[in-house]
Design a protein around this nucleic acid. Structure first.
Lengths: 270, 270
DNA sequence: CGTCCGTTTGAGCCTGGTCAATATGAGTGG
DNA sequence: CCACTCATATTGACCAGGCTCAAACGGACG
């Protein structure tokens, strides 16, 4: 039950908790406890009710969804990060399962306490807003990558993203197994292998989890990373006279389809 | 610039504004104005800074992303719904373009005023939290549908969703053109046609925008809708969790891969 | 009546998936 | 220390879902 002070200190580094006053922080984390799990443990099954906000302090966790015997990894988390905040705030069942990939340390915070704090403390409320908004945009980026890019391009961009994150333009090490990576990128392990093989033409050399990028520029020309999809890319200076693309430009076409008679139920889109 | 009282009344029906006190509501909507756009108007270009929260009062708007000459529709909105709330809260550039599909009425609310209200009024802050959490979960559902289902299955589930929404188990009318629908479902118009043809075996008869579902049960056996993907499906006997109120907004996002070594940039995943 | 789109249909191709067999490597027990 | 096992990766052959290109069809509108 007792958590070390150092563990609470670690989650204070998260934007979500960084600006809280000590007393509010104490309220929000009341009843929190730390748990250790071996690799391969399912922390949460999709469809389960969610009672806690999870904070990964050490190890690795994958979030996955499933349907009809099929499974897909939707995200892989590394410390320090929180997950299932949205379900906690809505008191709704989880949409994704959470599974440890390695031995992991997870801090569990009372959902009840967090909702109460969110409703009472405007500053924390706004922090939650920004957190959720960031998550939302993260998923939007994911959808765009999926619908707009082919397998090769997704792999190439993944390599560049890792390269940026790890700080070395020429060498990266895969943070988890290729099977997991393939599923995360929306492809089969076999195809990921083939993609790596194809990328040899662009200076990519794979040896186990170690990858050498001999010609990052060539890879970039293939990958064409965009600040609107890959959030590691900084927005470059836009070409000055954006050719014929002004906002509020009306383009011909788009015939008004007959409105469906049924009452539509207020869809919301951030 | 003057807005009719009836327009403000309409947005009060949205969960986001429903519970606000009149005075807070007046603050939040200060400086709001109504605009009318013809069909095919680009309201917002991806990458643009976002100064307003948009509320669609009449007509239809598509949100789309693009990359390298390719475009994909990420969502189609119907009244009354809000969009780009996440970008407003983060003061970040838009990740999606917004384009009218028909002649539309759009209410524009000052982002500045909304952020101020969110920071000051805990009740409104919590409403924004719930809104964003719902949007996030909507996009997660979209990603799951995309990664786990094939084209045929996506179309079948779309038909069932529309059927539920429009209240008639045997007859639906497509709310927008098939070209747009195809892109929303992540396929080409040609393939959507073929999918409809294939679905004839399951009692689906298509005549223009009108679709007759002769054997909904057969279609359901193929589609296998799930409460964890399709938010119109009510949870089965087991789960106690309330059926949430999540939009069909699809925003799949790839959480930034965590830094394997050194300082981690606190990835967030709701 | 003719034109213009959006949709449908057909033929061929190609990306990516499936199945099966073969390394490769880590962990275990003799 | 080695043999065995199991999981992960890779490679190849084959298959199919989905895309592209091209043409024909149909309704809406002038």
């Amino acid at each position: 039950m007792s958590i070390r002070q150092t563990d609470l200190d670690r989650i204070r580094t998260l934007p979500l908790f960084a600006d809280m006053t000590p007393s509010v922080f104490r309220d929000a984390t009341a009843g929190a406890f730390l748990q250790r799990f071996p690799a391969g443990t399912t922390l949460l099954m999709e469809g389960d009710p969610v009672d806690f906000l999870y904070v990964l302090l050490d190890g690795a966790v994958e979030l996955q969804g499933s349907w009809k015997e099929k499974e897909a990894v939707l995200a892989v988390l590394r410390p320090v990060s929180t997950f299932i905040l949205a379900a906690v705030m809505l008191e709704a069942p989880a949409l994704m399962s959470a599974r440890t990939l390695e031995r992991s340390e997870v801090l569990m915070l009372s959902g009840e306490a967090l909702r109460r704090t969110t409703r009472q403390d405007p500053a924390f409320g706004f922090a939650v807003v920004q957190e959720l908004a960031g998550c939302y945009r993260g998923v939007v980026r994911m959808v765009k990558a999926h619908k707009l890019r082919g397998c090769l391009e997704r792999v190439a961009n993944y390599l560049l993203a890792q390269s940026a994150r790890q700080g070395d333009p020429h060498h990266i090490v895969l943070p988890y197994g290729k099977r997991v990576l393939a599923s995360l990128l929306g492809m089969t392990p076999e195809n990921l292998s083939r993609a790596f093989a194809q990328l040899a033409d662009y200076g990519v050399q794979v040896r186990g989890p170690e990858i050498h990028l001999a010609r990052p520029r060539a890879l970039e020309r293939l990958a064409r990373p965009s600040p609107l999809i890959d959030n590691h890319v900084k927005a470059g200076p836009l070409p000055i006279g954006r050719a014929g693309t002004e906002s509020l430009t009306t383009t011909p076409g788009a015939p008004p389809p007959p409105a469906p008679s049924g009452v539509s139920a207020a869809p919301r889109t951030a």
